[in-house]
Nucleic acid binder design. Structure first.
Length: 864
RNA sequence: GGGCGAUUGGCUCAGUGGUAGAGCGCCUCGUUCACACCGAGGAGGUCACUGGUUCGAACCCAGUAUCGCCCA
């Protein structure tokens, strides 16, 4: 028996037989729907995908066998920066939206990888050409993902797959946005926001990553009435943007300064000294310069202390080319003239030199590690610039109409997290939000913000009166489509219109996967059968993004949770207990892994890890899974081999034929396993269910199969007799047990169990009902499951004698006194003949005594 | 600095109040009669540490240490 080739064979069979096809005639209460996070196809496949998606598939298969019609679609997340960057490198191009479309464009490269093509060498192409290349590349990526998922055995209905960039997704995302806008949940604002200089785009709070960033503390003197006031700053180039000095209200050192003003060095701008609790007394000098804007604390001070706006850093990361009007001294204006247009980095050097020359720098700069905000995909610290962007309310800012934060916290309580402690990550995130959700992105490959703006007669864009399309026309592209009531030639001219040039944040689409997959507003019949969904599986890292944003959209649009359960998978750790990642070079190709060990084996490893718990990448665990899968094949072949004539069929499942005590005891134990495994799976604890089943299965193979072997053959050992009824009992019990065990193992080992099922049963095990303990209990009668265990221990004692005598297990025991704990005697006596047969121990005397475990007191061995 | 989780035999992990468990690895044997991608037997742990609660603690409580993740 071999596992080779099972994956390809059964994947083809399941596709052909539509085993996992969703039956959309079923009603919501009969359906179990899963909102699988669509993987980012341009990202690389890694072991973590295999791990967490296996967890989901185990749930899907279990629920399907429980009789629920499982809605389990798969989507691909294509849009956004990862794809754009990959396209730039792969084809050697970059997007320039000002260029016209070239229908005959051929990319200069094909298959470039990494950072091999410098941006200077990238060919500028139109937005439409660029998007076409994005689409071309993602098709290839999707093929690889689907092949992997099929190989892994995910029971997905592939006819329901979607892409977060396809027309339907764009329509859903735009419609949901327009609904948000109409209800006042979406708004535009001119506000300070985080800006990535490299990617030239705004960045949302959820995309932030705080990283250590080397810098220097510069001790700088401001001019005060009673002498210099020293502050320490890592960003002296922002001194021209200073609007106040801020210290903690309780800080003794600065009490006398509150309410006074000081003068900035070099630029001579007079600013107030103010008190605010966000100032940290033990950090630097304890008094900070507030600029517009150096960091997020500056934004808070600016807002709460009503400070003026004096920005000097532009979107390109350079200081403004014009000298600001608030700098009035001649020396100050002259110095700024030298800084104008410089990057923040070279401006910093120039300012430090000037401070040194003027004597306002106290000592030399001291190296420090500070935390700076980065875009999670960027490598330069973010700047804070003021710009006009679109936001969706998420409870992060006060809203006079509703207490959205409280409502969303309530949704968090309503949602069943598995494991439950993951809920606090949601609560911490929602509780700590300090702004609404910025959704505008200045990128190209994504869903366009579906709005135009009028251009006034004097050529100004009127952002306050956006023009929305009719819902029936969605999806639209405002850069090529024309708003109602206008003609194409009015684009960009006075009295005409302009389209919003931005796209939406990736999450603004991805947060709608239940709606996209479920057919919201284009297949309401389907939507009513699957929404709200039952399960959202995902990683703990995206609770604050994917999970939260999806809850926001569903709450706003439908007034409900998007799903009832959230199953959170842990990380994969390498042998050094570090998170596996590409940069560490310790990732393994998932397809190679599946080919090497077999899909059932890899699934076993994944299913052995509980939800929420990090798991070691352990090849050893996969080998155990492989051994288990092979054992399923071999033990099944053996159990089905009795009785000749090609083995038993479903007719062998005759509970009434089970009359022997040992057989009944085994079924009683199996009934317990069914009950407890079912309970565990209902509680989203697939690991416990697997452990229970697996433990029983090994006992079944090692002890029960050995104990009933002879009886099932119908061949009695010497000195014993076997009745036809006793043989029939063994065969029926084997068939019943195998039937049950295959179903219990099917969610974890879909290939091996399906293979065995096909030998003797009709249809697919994956559409067979989940086992029920009741019929097993009926067949077991009043048998005590401990009888199998006691018999197994008795057999082990006989084996030990042979093992210690270093003889074959086939060696007959001519005479032996087997001592069992007195409390076990009544259990072993009725099954003593099975023990005698399995131990080749014709002359076995059984006694009870006060012993810890069964042992052989005296014996005489024969010849093998 | 705050939050969450973890710490059990060489390794990976179960075990949530009543005499320490599994698999792998290791040691000793056996075997091709379902399974060598095999079988049997065996050795191996003061359950991170310190206090406390309890008749009794790996488990409950308090604190400490180390590791991981998330947020400042």
């Amino acid at each position: 028996m071999s596992l080779e080739g099972l994956e390809a064979r059964w994947d083809a069979a399941w596709t052909e037989q539509r085993t996992y096809a969703f039956d959309r005639t079923r009603t919501r209460d009969e359906v179990y729907s899963i909102d699988t996070p669509p993987p980012t196809v341009s990202g690389s496949l890694h072991v973590g995908h295999v791990f967490s998606y296996t967890h989901t598939d185990v749930v899907a298969r279990y629920q399907r066998m429980r009789g629920r019609e499982v809605f389990y679609p798969m989507g691909w997340d294509d849009n956004g920066l990862p794809t754009e960057r990959r396209v730039q490198n792969y084809y050697g191009v970059r997007c320039d939206p000002s260029l016209p479309y070239d229908p005959d464009f051929t990319p200069p490269h094909e298959g470039g990888e990494g950072k091999s093509i410098k941006s200077a060498d990238q060919v500028p192409i139109s937005r439409r050409n660029f998007v076409e290349l994005c689409e071309r590349l993602t098709v290839e990526d999707e093929r690889q993902f689907e092949a992997l998922w099929r190989r892994l055995g995910l029971s997905v209905d592939w006819s329901h797959h979607y892409q977060t960039i396809d027309a339907r997704s764009r329509a859903v995302a735009q419609k949901a946005f327009l609904r948000n806008l109409a209800r006042g949940e979406a708004y535009q604002a001119e506000a300070p926001g985080l800006w990535d200089v490299t990617f030239q785009t705004a960045v949302a709070q959820a995309e932030l990553e705080a990283r250590d960033y080397p810098g220097h503390f510069h001790r700088v003197a401001f001019g005060g009435a009673d002498g210099p006031v020293h502050i320490e700053t890592t960003r002296p180039e922002l001194i021209p943007a200073v609007v106040a000095l801020v210290a903690h209200p309780d800080d003794e050192r600065y009490q006398h300064l509150f309410g006074t003003t000081v003068t900035s060095p070099l630029f001579g701008v007079e600013v107030p000294v103010l008190a605010h609790p966000a100032a940290e007394p033990d950090k630097g000098a304890g008094i900070a310069m507030c600029c517009t804007f150096g960091d997020l604390t500056d934004v808070q001070w600016w807002r709460e202390l009503q400070l003026p706006t004096r920005s000097v850093v532009q979107r390109d990361g350079r200081l403004s080319r014009e000298t600001p009007e608030w700098i009035t001294t001649e020396a100050g204006r002259a110095l700024f003239g030298e800084l104008a247009g410089k990057t923040t980095f070279s401006a910093r050097t120039a300012v430090v030199d000037a401070l040194r020359a003027s004597g306002d720098l106290d000592g030399e700069p001291v190296p420090t590690q500070r935390k700076a905000n980065f875009f999670e995909k960027g490598d330069k610290p973010l700047e804070i610039v003021t710009s006009r962007q679109w936001y969706i309310r998420n409870g992060g800012r006060e809203w006079e109409q509703r207490d959205l934060r409280a409502e969303l916290l309530g949704r968090g309580e309503e949602l069943a997290f598995h494991p439950d402690f993951m809920r606090v990550r949601y609560e911490n995130w929602v509780g700590g939000l300090n702004g609404d959700w910025l959704i505008s992105r200045q990128r190209f490959f994504g869903v366009a913000i579906p709005l135009w703006y009028p251009v006034t007669a004097d050529g100004e864009v009127d952002h306050d009166h956006p023009i929305a399309p009719d819902e029936a026309t969605l999806p639209i592209d405002p850069s090529s489509d024309v708003p109602p009531g206008y003609t194409a030639d009015q684009r960009g001219v006075p009295g005409g219109f302009v389209g919003d040039a931005d796209i939406m944040d990736t999450w603004a689409t991805s947060s709608l996967t239940p709606q996209i997959a479920g057919g919201w507003e284009w297949d309401d019949d389907l939507f009513a059968r699957v929404f709200p969904m039952d399960l959202r599986p995902q990683g703990q890292d995206i609770i604050r993004t994917w999970l939260f944003s999806t809850v926001v959209r569903s709450h706003l649009e439908h007034g409900s949770l998007p799903w009832r359960h959230a199953a959170i998978s842990g990380w994969i750790l390498d042998p050094d207990r570090k998170k596996m990642s590409k940069s560490k070079g310790n990732v393994v190709t998932p397809m190679g892994l599946l080919e090497e060990h077999g899909s059932d084996a890899v699934r076993y490893w994944a299913a052995s890890a509980r939800l929420g718990t990090d798991a070691a990448f352990e090849v050893g665990q996969m080998k155990i899974g492989r051994r288990l899968a092979i054992k399923v094949l071999n033990a099944s072949k053996f159990a089905l081999s009795f009785g000749g004539d090609g083995g038993p069929t479903a007719q062998a499942l005759d509970a009434a034929a089970v009359t022997e005590v040992l057989d009944r005891a085994m079924l009683a134990g199996l009934a317990d396993v069914v009950e407890r495994a079912t309970e565990a799976l209902e509680a989203y604890d697939h690991t416990r269910a697997l452990e229970l089943t697996e433990t029983f299965f090994w006992t079944f193979c090692d002890d029960y199969l050995e104990l009933v072997k002879d009886r099932a053959y119908g061949a009695a050992a010497e000195g014993l007799t076997v009745s036809p009824e006793a043989t029939a009992s063994a065969r029926a019990a084997l068939a019943l047990a195998l039937d049950t065990l295959l179903r219990l193992l099917a969610p974890v080992l879909p290939f091996a169990t399906e293979e065995v099922w096909s030998w003797w049963r009709e249809g697919s095990v994956h559409r067979a009902p989940w086992p029920d303990a009741a019929p097993l209990r009926a067949a077991a009668g009043d048998a005590d499951p401990a009888a199998l265990d006691a018999a197994g221990r008795a057999l082990a004692a006989l084996r030990k004698v042979k093992s210690e005598a270093k003889v074959s297990m086939r060696t007959p025991i001519l005479r032996a006194e087997l001592v069992v704990p007195s409390v076990h005697l009544a259990l072993v006596e009725p099954v003593a003949d099975d023990v005698r047969a399995a131990g080749r121990a014709q002359g076995l005397t059984l006694v009870g005594d006060d012993v810890e475990a069964a042992l052989v007191r005296s014996h005489e061995l024969g010849e093998a």
